[in-house]
Nucleic acid binder design. Structure first.
Lengths: 127, 127
DNA sequence: TGATTAGGTTGACTTTGTCAACCATGTTCA
DNA sequence: TGAACATGGTTGACAAAGTCAACCTAATCA
């Protein structure tokens, strides 16, 4: 799904979008949390965050609970970008499902979720 | 789906698996056909095919219809590898769907296919 | 306090994929 | 026929994405 969105119009590479989403929607978001959520190397997270910082889409603030880390927040520009991304996603989603019923789509999502849960079961045992 | 399979045990990177599948299942398979099917650069196809050749999984034969191209076929080792891959895929598939009914799975596949068709509609207009 | 762990940054590297140039063959058409 | 152009495939240079290991600083724990 996601890739078809970038194909279209997006000014940001796919991973950047995902990380921006995390910054926007995850409570008390830090680099570490993103790395865990996305199961990716923290080095890469750092680099993408730097890109987003340079692009003025996010900002760092001191983390009162841990001086080593920073809390991440979207800037107004970041919120606007997020808005735009959501519009595009919604757009392609409706294109995908234009001739399906609401019930079919919900059924699909429920089963997809179910399947991913089944797979998450046996990942690296450190959870 | 596919990525979880490689995670597990597979001795081949993901793209190699997909290309081996094409060689095994596409009639009169050539590099060009694979590149079209997978919508990938033909340079990369060449390189992956070379890997598979070196690994002894496929073989090239002259194409009587066009001396520039070669027909691709799996070797016995390639067939065996394909067999193994299918087993692994089947395995994770049943893990994903262990607590779903046959009907649910079929419904899911049908809708997924439908959605991809909806998206294929507006790709680069050269079809 | 000292030893160890954890968050983050950086550099070197691998993997995967793309772009452009090229060669040899095929195709078209005056 | 033969010149011009198109096509399948190969190669080299490169960009993008991700991984590994070393490191610094702050936190934790004995």
């Amino acid at each position: 799904m996601v890739q078809t969105i970038r194909d279209a119009n997006l000014p940001l590479p796919g991973t950047h979008v995902r990380i921006l989403k995390a910054v926007c929607y995850v409570q008390a978001c830090t680099a570490r949390r993103i790395a865990q959520r996305m199961r990716r190397d923290k080095a890469q997270i750092t680099r993408v965050l730097n890109d987003l910082l340079e692009a003025g889409l996010i900002s760092k603030a001191c983390n009162p609970a841990d001086k080593r880390s920073h809390l991440l927040h979207p800037t107004p520009a970041g919120e606007a970008m997020m808005q735009r991304i959501q519009e595009l996603e919604q757009q392609t989603l409706t294109r995908m499902t234009c001739d399906l019923t609401q019930a079919e789509v919900e059924h699909f999502i429920r089963i997809a979720w179910h399947m991913t849960q089944n797979l998450e079961g046996d990942l690296p045992p450190d959870s």
